[in-house]
Nucleic acid binder design. Structure first.
Lengths: 88, 88
DNA sequence: CTATATTGAACAATATAATGGTCAAAATAT
DNA sequence: ATATTTTGACCATTATATTGTTCAATATAG
């Protein structure tokens, strides 16, 4: 019923998003990697939808000014859960 | 200017969200771990704000019916980027 | 209350992400 | 057109996430 999308597809989309923002800001993979103090390989793995750690992703999101937004959505989801009556 | 929140704090909040949903659904860490075919240690690391992989997180979000929502927001963010004129 | 289940913590072993490097293809610049 | 930059791919090494386990503390159930 829920979650028809596959994990692999979500990772691909995250990678495409990061790549799109990086391109728009005129950064190369190497420039972004240096700015975040991670390797180019890590950026590449993220952009190509391989597995990666939450630290790598959050460093990228922070650089792209998306970290606050993500945090807000997490807080909102949490509040929503706290509010809802359990259906289980 | 942007992104005043710290990476560590976001990881903590993600962990608290996962824990809140798991509790609400009446799952123990072991039950959730078995359902996702990961170890309880991985669930524990995620809930306690340690580092973890995107695979572990997405497995959890899928189980909690949040994967489609995340995917939609990624797509929306991507569309937003594609649309916007570059400021760089 | 006592018994049971759950959780946080720590550990060694294994699997794998991160790093730093090279190279050819593709994209971009000149 | 050629020169330059960037990227995807691959590789060996290192760092670390994952696994499986035990144990004490805490929470929950009886």
């Amino acid at each position: 019923m829920f979650d028809s999308v596959e994990i692999k597809e979500v990772k691909n989309e995250i990678g495409l998003l990061v790549k799109a923002i990086r391109k728009q800001r005129g950064f190369s993979q190497i420039q972004l990697a240096k700015a975040l103090d991670v390797s180019r390989t890590s950026i590449q793995n993220l952009e190509l939808g391989k597995n990666f750690t939450i630290d790598t992703l959050l460093k990228v999101l922070k650089e792209m000014d998306l970290l606050d937004q993500l945090n807000s959505e997490v807080l909102q989801a949490k509040a929503h859960v706290m509010n809802a009556k359990s259906m289980y």
